[in-house]
Every structure is written in C-alpha cells, then in structure tokens.
Design a protein around this nucleic acid. Structure first.
Lengths: 211, 211
DNA sequence: CCTTTCGGTGAACACGTGTACACCGAAATG
DNA sequence: CATTTCGGTGTACACGTGTTCACCGAAAGG
C-alpha cells in the first residue's frame, strides 16, 4: 500500500460533483424501486443508499415527488429510444419492433418497471408527468402511422385512436416482460407480435364509417 | 330528545357484528385509497377511519397485505359483473359493451381505481392476486370468443391472444375513465369503442399463419 | 490573497408508525 | 346459571420518519 498523498483523482469541478451525487440519488432510488412503489420509499432510505446524509437531499430536490418527476424524465428517454430504434430498423416489420422493445426492456428493466408501476400510481405529480409524456409519445406514433401508405387517408382522430391502442398494447407487453421470468420471455414476445399483427389486419380493413 | 333507554337496535349476532366491522375496515381502506396507493396506507389510518382501535385490526386481517388481497376479491366481483352484464345484453354490440363498462366504472370508481392502480403496484401479494384474477377473466373471455361464429375455428392459443389484447384495451380504458373528468367521458367511451371495432375488424380477417 | 458561494455534515425535534400485552364485557355454549 | 369464547379496548414501547438549524471546508470569483 503506497502512501503517495498526491491527488490521484482529478479535483473535479463543483458542478460536476453536484451532478454526480444528484445522479447517485436517482440511481439509488431506482434501485430501491425494484420491489417497492414510490409511495413506500423514504427520503432517508434513498440518501442512505446513495451514501449521503439526509439533509443533502434538499440540495438537489425539493421533495421526493420532485425526484419522482426527474425519474420520469430519465426513464422516458429510455422508452423513446424504443420508438426511435424501431423506426430506423424498418417500421413495417412488426416482429422486429417487438424484438427491439424486448431488448430494451431487458437492458434497463428498472426504467420500464418504474414507468408502468407509477403510471397509475399514488403520486399525482409523477402520474401527471408520465401521462403527458405518454400522450406525447402517442401523438408522435400517430404522425408516424399517418405516413404509412395504408393509413395515408385516415382522419387524425382515427390515427390517434389507433396509436393509443398500440401504446396500450405496448405498455401491457412491457408489464408482462418486466414481471416475466426470463425463460418465458419468448412466449410474451410472440403473443405481443401476434396482437400487433391482429391490429395491423384491422387497420388494413378500416374505413371511417360514422356509426 | 327522549331518553328511553330501551334497546332500540337488535342485539345483533356476534358474527354479524364481526362481519360488519370487517366490512367497515375494507370500506374505510377503499375510501382512503381514493388518492393514495396501498403502500402509502397505514394500519392506524384505516382503523381510525373505520372507527375502531388499531389493535382490533388483527381480529380480521393478519396484515395490510392481507386486507389488500381481500380488497382484490371484492373489487374483482365488480369487474366480473361487467363481463356478465355485457354477455346478457348481446355480446356482439361493441358499443353496448363499452357503455356497460363505463356505467359500472361510474357506479363504483373506487373498485376500478384500486384494481388498475395496484395491478403493477408495490405489494407483491396484491399484485399476484390481481394477476391471477385477470388471467382467469381473460380465459373466460377467450372461451366466450370461441363461441362466436367468426372465431369458431380459432386455435385456443390465438383465442387467448385476442382475449388478452381485449383485456389490455379494457384496462387502459378503465384507467382513462377513472382519471377522466366526467365531461370528457363520452370521448373516452367513443375512442374505446372504435378501438374495439378495429380489433374486431382484425379478427374477421385473421388466419392462423405461422410466420 | 481574501471573500463569497455552496454542496455536504451532524445533532436535534416532534410525530406517526406496527405490534405486544393485559384486560374487559357480552354473546355463545354447556 | 356457570363457564368459555372472542371482538374490541387502552397502555406502552422502540423505531423510522421529514425537516430545522448552525456549521464546515473547499471550490469559485474578485
């Protein structure tokens, strides 16, 4: 054990250090949320897991709700990546899209679990944040759908309806994936693909009748 | 204010009284869950709202988790009523089915809110209970679908897939209904009906190819 | 170099919590 | 009528919580 007392690590800018502990708090929270909901998460627990004293929390967030909203932002980035990646690898291939989704869920399960768990969850601010983000995502998907040849003539209203349905199905799949043991993940993926195919079939035959 | 000290209420059998306070606990919990998740609900709060001393709780439930599972049972009865009522009033009419759902949600919002909120929620026992109940419901719906002329020749596997999709859509609708202000409930109902119609269209054209 | 800024500290507080325990009184049982 | 059963009571305890406050030390800024 050498005892050179020279600074072995870079001095680290002050705002860099702040960013780091802020991220540590977010990570710690996400970790603890593996088996709990945000409601059952205490400030002290988070700071303890982040290796920081309780009062330091307030240097970064006004409250746990605040941290929750920040988590929504972070996790939503991961979810949006699914759409983006699916778009690149040929939006038409349903099987591929579902595969991308499954892959992303496997890569960052905590992010997806957080979203599906807190979506109807007990914290109004978080719930609202997720809701608006999902609305945005659905709108994005709707315009994507509108660019497909089959749906070029669709009313924006119907596009939105179809997009909402697909988002619902996707979230249900996410929940199943997050809950599933890994050995029956293929089954979940298969079912999701067939469901999407069923919807696609419906889309082909849709006509905007007014019943 | 007369002061006849005669027993004005029936003596009430002992197990009747027990049932009554047990139900009072369940009702109190459901009330408090209007704006909270189960994780954020304390035993003392529930007993306070039920007009009973904390320790009395244990005469009825081993823990809050236990009470949660009991709530699942109760709320699921309400949800199953939707399927039953929809079956009676002509299963073919999509519009009617959605109307029945909306009506039931309006009649007992707390029951539905509890189910959608705790489904991915933080309490394993409750989550598991809801999951199995929903599996049962989906299975039931699958056999229902199998009786329809259009789907008579379907594989049970595909029936299950379609039923799962419909349950997912239904639960998404329930969440929207529970969250929605009453004045845009018609919009939600309309979208749900169109989504179901889209699925129905897909079903008509489905053939069990193996891709 | 001196001063200010500010992320992190540690002690302290009032409070709500889950649960154990001994106890009560009336319904149930003989 | 005597006894047992049992739903509900009241007290008590140890514990984790959110938030307060004054304080520290080093980076940032003049």
């Amino acid at each position: 054990m050498s005892s050179t007392l020279l600074a072995v690590t870079e001095p680290e800018s002050r705002q860099d250090r702040k960013r780091r502990t802020r991220q540590a708090l977010l990570d710690a929270a996400l970790d603890l949320l593996a088996d709990r909901a945000m409601t059952g998460l205490s400030l002290r627990e988070v700071t303890r897991a982040a290796g920081v004293v309780p009062t330091a929390f307030y240097r970064h967030f006004a409250s746990m709700d605040d941290l929750g909203v920040a988590l929504v932002e972070q996790c939503m980035r991961t979810l949006r990546a699914v759409l983006r990646r699916a778009r690149r690898s040929g939006a038409a291939m349903i099987t591929d899209s579902v595969a991308v989704l499954a892959e992303q869920v496997r890569a960052a399960p905590a992010h997806f679990r957080f979203l599906v768990r807190e979506r109807p969850g007990g914290i109004p601010a978080v719930r609202a944040a997720i809701a608006t983000e999902l609305r945005l995502l659905a709108a994005e998907l709707a315009t994507d759908l509108g660019r497909l040849p089959v749906m070029a003539e669709w009313e924006t209203d119907d596009l939105r309806m179809a997009a909402d349905l697909m988002v619902s199905a996707m979230l249900a799949t996410v929940m199943a994936l997050v809950e599933a043991e890994e050995f029956d993940e293929p089954e979940v993926v298969d079912v999701a693909a067939r469901q999407l195919r069923l919807i696609a079939l419906g889309i082909e035959r849709w006509r905007p009748e007014t019943p």
